[in-house]
């Protein structure tokens, strides 16, 4: 009995030690980021480097925001993110209904086509898309970053919604049909209200993707009045050198919405990841 207990204890100790080392390794970069963000100029290039900023320069955060047009970029990032997330989630929710709750000839073939588009690297379409958006005068507007989201919401989101809808019993649909409800009403009043978890999950993924997107803004946005935050962070890298303390402060500020969302909605992050991995 004793040896079994000892084995269990040593097992627990091993797990805790390994996890502690691992999580320290995962936390260090963030700690380092915060430490750098708070360092006075004189300490940035101290050798060997110091862990603790002395004194902590809380003013760096204010200075970072004032270093570049933070609020204008924040506004653009917010506009793009809110609209793109709404577009992706809403249109994927609608499209997935057509695949999950309606029977029609060719459905499986078309759905296969949806999944097949996941295989095409975005680089293939990037160049012609740029040419098309150029011709219709959308370059240097937020439109190329927003409008495509409203058309199908991305194959991955359609897939997520379809999988979820299929777990909603058919009886709801059948009962509503008997009552003479249109499919649009069923979607709007019965299916959508039951789909909050998948809406949350898809929104989170869409949010992460849009908020952090860099290649799209680099290609399509030219004038600072249209810049989003990821582009704005580049301002700290000047030809003559980098303002590391302010840059780290600004990067942290840009990450804060993601971190907040993560802590409040971690359940949905996990669910979303799990769904994407398991529902094959």
């Amino acid at each position: 009995m004793r040896s079994l207990k000892a084995a269990r204890t040593s097992y627990a100790v091993t797990v805790y030690v390994l996890l502690t080392i691992g999580s320290l390794a995962f936390l260090f970069p963030l700690v380092w980021m915060l430490s750098t963000a708070l360092k006075p100029d004189s300490q940035l290039f101290a050798y060997p480097p110091q862990w603790l900023p002395r004194p902590p320069m809380w003013g760096n955060f204010k200075a970072a925001i004032e270093y570049f047009p933070f609020w204008a970029y924040f506004r653009n990032s917010t506009i793009v993110t809110v609209l793109a997330v709404f577009g992706q989630v809403f249109s994927a929710a609608i499209v997935a209904y057509g695949f999950a709750k309606l029977r029609w000839p060719g459905r499986e073939v078309v759905f296969f086509l949806v999944l097949a588009t996941l295989m095409i690297p975005s680089q293939v379409t990037m160049i012609p898309q740029f040419v098309i958006f150029t011709r219709i005068g959308w370059v240097d507007t937020l439109l190329p970053l927003i409008v495509p989201s409203f058309f199908g919401g991305g194959a991955f989101n359609v897939f997520l919604f379809r999988q979820y809808y299929r777990t909603i019993p058919r009886e709801y649909n059948d009962a509503a049909r008997i009552d003479g409800a249109s499919h649009w009403r069923i979607f709007w009043q019965i299916i959508l209200p039951q789909s909050k978890p998948v809406i949350a999950t898809a929104s989170i993924f869409a949010f992460l993707w849009t908020w952090n997107d860099f290649m799209g803004p680099v290609i399509y946005l030219h004038s600072p009045k249209n810049f989003t935050l990821p582009i704005g962070l580049r301002a700290f890298q000047q030809q003559t050198g980098t303002e590391w303390d302010l840059l780290m402060a600004a990067s942290l500020i840009v990450m804060i919405p993601v971190i907040l969302l993560f802590f409040f909605l971690q359940r949905y992050f996990v669910q979303g990841m799990a769904m994407s991995g398991l529902n094959r």
Partner: peptide, 28 residues
């Protein structure tokens, strides 16, 4: 939570952070 968090932070901010972390003389 600790292992999961970094994966949701991505893009420019993270790249710039690691640029600093890998600085040969003053990096983490």
């Amino acid at each position: 939570t600790i292992f999961f968090l970094p994966s949701v932070l991505s893009g420019v901010g993270v790249a710039l952070l690691w640029l600093w972390i890998f600085n040969p003389d003053y990096g983490l």
